[in-house]
Amino acid sequence: MLKVNNIHVSYGKVEIIKQVSFEVNQGEVVVIIGANGAGKTTIMKTVTGLLKPTQGEILFEGQNIARTPAEKIVKLGLAMCPEGRQVFPQHTVYENLVLGGYLIRKDKPMFQKNIEQMYNLFPILKERSKQVAGTLSGGEQQMLAIARAMMSNPKLLLLDEPSAGLAPIYVKNIFDMIQKLSEQGTTILLVEQMANMALKIADRAYVLETGRIALGGTAVEIMNDPKVVESYLGSKKY
């Protein structure tokens, strides 16, 4: 479904991503794990079109989207829930969802159906639908951010560090949700620092180290790789 071939990405003169290749197949949950500053968010921004690679190609369902503007990529069926949640703080919960469904705004029944679906998935959002998003808790904002991304019926959902800054109870909750979405048929590309949790729900995984893919394989392989255990799972493993 998504195939990234040898991309290089730079911020100004500094090359952050060097010759990165990976792929995500239909129905999979793929996780990219890596330390802070390894370039995980940069990869996500590049796939969604917010950054442009200096080299390489990004194929989404066979179409090269490396030069496509971000707002057009969303139309192709690729949505992202950005790092730090980034819900629209002055909009109500409902308005956030409306914006998430901007692309299907003309299809009223579909729009209505999606809203209902999100409310079912995240009942708290229904409860708070008239509340301004800036006043939600971090976990609630994360749910809203995921729901917002799901509003456009994406084929591929990108999640950038959904667990960052959340209370442990919410982290568990969020990963359960992700698994649920996957079971409902959404392909998911996940970027995480919380390697252990992510690997548990993933089918395959990549390890990103200073802008390069250091390792790739099934989630089980990666989970059992001694280097990964040492660097990313370590004492946190439980």
Binding site: K45, T48, G49, L50, P69, A70, E71, V74, K75, A79, M80, P82, Q86, F88, P89, Q90, H91, E95, V98, L99, G100, Y102, L103, R148, A149, S152
Partner: peptide, 20 residues
């Protein structure tokens, strides 16, 4: 809504499929 969203962040607005 889109106007207000644009003022918050151009890139997040783009992620909604809206040309900021």
């Amino acid at each position: 809504n889109a106007i207000k969203a644009t003022s918050f962040s151009h890139s997040v607005t783009k992620l909604m499929g809206i040309s900021s």
